[in-house]
Amino acid sequence: MKKMMLFGTVMLALTALTAIPSGYPGAQEVTVYSGNMQALNDLAAAEFQKAAGIKANIVRVPSGVAMKRMRAEKDNPQGDVIWGVSKVALMANADLLAPYKSKFSDLIDPLFRDPEHRWTGTNLQVPILMYNKKLVKEGEAPRKWSDLLDPKWKNKVAYSNPANSSFSFTVFTMMLHAFGNNEAAWKKMEAFLANVQVVEQSAMVPSNVEKGEFAVGVALEYMAARYVASGANVGMVYPEDGTAAQAEGAGIIKGGKNPKSAEQFVDFCNDKSFREKVIKEMFRRPARKDLDFSQIVPMPPLSQIKTMPGFVDTDYLADREKILTRIKDILLRIK
């Protein structure tokens, strides 16, 4: 009888050991909130499983929505990592992130990582102009951001909602900066808003332009470059008045249930073999400064792209909600 009781006790202990819940040492999974396209999420999940033996549950969600979700869950976080959102969004929500110095941190320019290691840059987003070649001749395509104020583009320009897209917010503040960041500049930005049609997600812009639903789009470099490389009837323009290189990054959600797996995933995001695969398959410009992709994708080195003089995206961070409210009020009045 005692032997039977001892056997039962041992079996219960073994059962408990094999049923360790997520978040305890030995847990082999991580939940990632991602603003990336599903194709990249799928690639990352598969490659991370192979590299680390850890299952990545990657939840695709727009960056603005992801941050609202994290804040709503802060007392009981359901995610472990935030990935694929802008530097601006990460800085604005840094209180939700746990410090961790990635092993690849020193390969990232200090401009593209948090000095307190709450997030690290993974790739760089460059805003560009994209146009449909069937609707716009190459010589007539807009060459500058200021060209988008011309009434001839009214309702012909696709622009993603800056409340949902940090990239679109950066474009808006970059143009506001170029025009002087004063009331006269806001008048010009009203003319810009009058010409655009707002779509809800940045991924919709290149698709809409390629289909001919819009003649021109304010797009992300990598999205447009993929269409160009595939032979689609579209062109892309690096604006002559300058653009920006905005970091997207990854950070560990404070209080998440799988902190060790989260650290491994953040490191993996900048792993050399993974980044090279992402460049080749997804055209995503890496934040790592030691990777040469000039022979892989049709995108120039960052050093050859003119940046907007004097523009610093984080200068507008404190006034983000105020700017978004004013944009919304203008759209309600003029549309």
Rank of each mutant, 00 (worst) to 15 (best):
M1V: 10
M1K: 09
K2N: 11
K2W: 08
K3V: 12
M5Y: 09
L6R: 12
A13Q: 02
S22Y: 09
P25D: 13
A27Y: 10
V30N: 07
Y33D: 01
S34L: 12
N36T: 10
Q38V: 14
A44I: 09
E47S: 08
Q49N: 08
K50D: 11
A52I: 00
G53L: 11
K55T: 14
A56R: 06
R60T: 12
S63N: 05
A66C: 03
D80V: 09
V81N: 07
W83P: 02
W83N: 04
V85I: 15
V85P: 00
M91S: 12
D95T: 03
K101H: 02
K103T: 13
F104S: 06
F104I: 00
F104C: 00
S105I: 01
L107D: 10
I108G: 02
L111C: 01
L111W: 03
F112M: 01
D114N: 12
P115S: 03
T120M: 14
N123R: 05
V126S: 06
M130W: 05
K133S: 13
E138S: 14
E140V: 01
K144Q: 04
D150W: 04
K152Q: 10
K154Y: 06
K154M: 04
N155P: 00
K156Q: 15
Y159H: 04
P162I: 08
S166V: 02
S168L: 04
M175G: 03
M175L: 07
L176W: 12
H177N: 06
G180H: 14
G180F: 13
N182M: 11
A184D: 15
A184E: 15
A185I: 05
W186Q: 09
K187M: 08
A191I: 01
Q197A: 08
V199A: 10
E200D: 15
E200Y: 12
A203M: 11
V205T: 05
V205E: 00
V209E: 08
F214P: 00
V216G: 04
V218K: 01
A219M: 08
M223P: 01
A224I: 07
R226P: 00
Y227A: 13
V228K: 15
A229T: 02
Y238G: 05
E240A: 14
E248V: 09
I252K: 07
I253F: 09
I253D: 02
G256V: 07
G256H: 08
S261F: 08
S261W: 05
F268H: 09
E281L: 14
R284Q: 14
R284H: 10
R284D: 08
R285M: 14
D290W: 06
L291I: 15
Q295H: 14
P301K: 11
K306M: 06
F311T: 00
T314A: 12
D315L: 04
A318P: 00
I327F: 11
K335T: 11
